[in-house]
């Protein structure tokens, strides 16, 4: 395949590697992992054998892999996530510093997605195969086709650059509510619209499923008013699959928050992970992976518990 595109790799006097992100990437050459295992890549090619040994000793790379794994996990569980290879700062401390920013962004985006997506989905389902339905389906499909960084950039161009309503860089400045809101508005709108699209589609199909159930027909036959059927009988059952999907989409959202944080230059886990990648800070990356795993597990537990709230048939022992 490489030969196929050989002409694309021709060397040229290109200055594009001087940009901020590209600079890091040039250091992050192929084989980084192997080089890391031997320590050469972090200390440079000229590192002495003694320096390499000291490095291996410090990172524990000379011990069996399983031993390294269990020691790391044991430490992680007791709150010791180690230090960054590059800055020497505590990884847990760094993560806790930026975690509120990512959580706040994710939380507000989900709320936005739920508040707009569920009514949109119900509306679409109630007008099945009518103009409104087609319109909603088309718009939501466009919505979930947007890579987060493209919609982020479009929003940035429209609201920050052309209209000048909101700040281009959304970090810091959280003294008052208005400053906080102005910082959060565009990143949350970026992720929120993606969430709206996903939730509206799930709500629509779930609502259609429920509306074709026998008990809905029975309710209709008894003469229950349409409003009561939809809001009382159908909606609650239709929301069960929506909760599952919201839990799943939260994972997508956490992934997309990386891109959003880069575009809006906002502090958060995403900025931390990209910074660590650039500096090849592997201990930091390791810590961040554990952090992401915890977040995903936490979301799953939260999702499971929410079932009990919506569906009285679910009982926890």
């Amino acid at each position: 395949m490489k030969d196929h595109h050989a002409h694309l790799y021709r060397p040229s006097t290109d200055y594009s590697h001087t940009d901020a992100i590209g600079r890091h990437v040039d250091y992050l050459c192929p084989g980084a992992y192997c080089a890391w295992r031997s320590g050469t890549d972090y200390l440079g090619d000229q590192a002495s054998a003694a320096a390499l040994d000291a490095m291996r000793e410090r990172l524990g790379l000379n011990r069996p892999l399983l031993e390294q794994y269990f020691e790391f996990m044991g430490n992680a569980l007791s709150g010791d996530w180690g230090e960054s290879m590059v800055t020497g700062k505590s990884i847990l401390g760094e993560v806790i510093n930026v975690l509120p920013y990512t959580l706040e962004l994710t939380f507000v985006s989900v709320i936005f997605g739920v508040v707009t997506g569920i009514p949109l989905g119900i509306w679409s389902a109630l007008h099945r195969n009518q103009l409104i339905d087609y319109f909603v389906r088309l718009m939501t499909l466009i919505g979930l086709s947007f890579p987060a960084f493209v919609s982020a950039i479009l929003l940035l161009i429209i609201f920050s650059i052309n209209l000048g309503w909101l700040p281009v860089i959304s970090s810091g400045g959280r003294d008052d509510f208005i400053g906080w809101f102005r910082d959060l508005a565009l990143p949350a709108l970026t992720l929120g619209t993606i969430m709206t699209a996903y939730i509206a589609r799930v709500t629509r199909s779930s609502m259609l499923d429920v509306l074709s159930e026998d008990y809905i027909r029975t309710a209709r036959a008894k003469g229950v008013p349409n409003k009561v059927i939809i809001w009382h009988h159908a909606l609650r059952n239709a929301l069960i699959p929506v909760v599952t999907m919201v839990g799943l989409f939260l994972g997508v959202l956490v992934g997309n928050s990386v891109l959003t944080e880069i575009v809006f230059n906002r502090p958060g886990l995403g900025k931390l992970i990209v910074g660590a990648l650039g500096q090849r800070d592997y201990t930091m990356l390791q810590g961040l992976m554990v952090c992401y795993a915890f977040i995903i597990i936490f979301i799953n537990i939260l999702t499971d518990l929410t079932y009990g709230l919506i569906d009285p048939r679910v009982k926890y022992q």
Binding site: H5, L8, Y9, S12, D14, S16, H17, D19, I21, G22, H24, V25, L28, P147, A148, F149, V150, I153, L156, I157, I161, V168, V258, L259, I262, V263, V274, L277, G278
Partner: peptide, 29 residues
């Protein structure tokens, strides 16, 4: 596209959509 945008894609000068957006983003104003 997302990985290229972050800077982890096929290396420049090859044209990738994500990479083009990343370069364009620096002149966005």
């Amino acid at each position: 596209a997302s990985l290229s945008f972050i800077g982890l894609g096929v290396k420049p000068p090859a044209a990738t959509w994500g990479g083009m957006i990343r370069e364009g983003f620096e002149n966005i104003l």
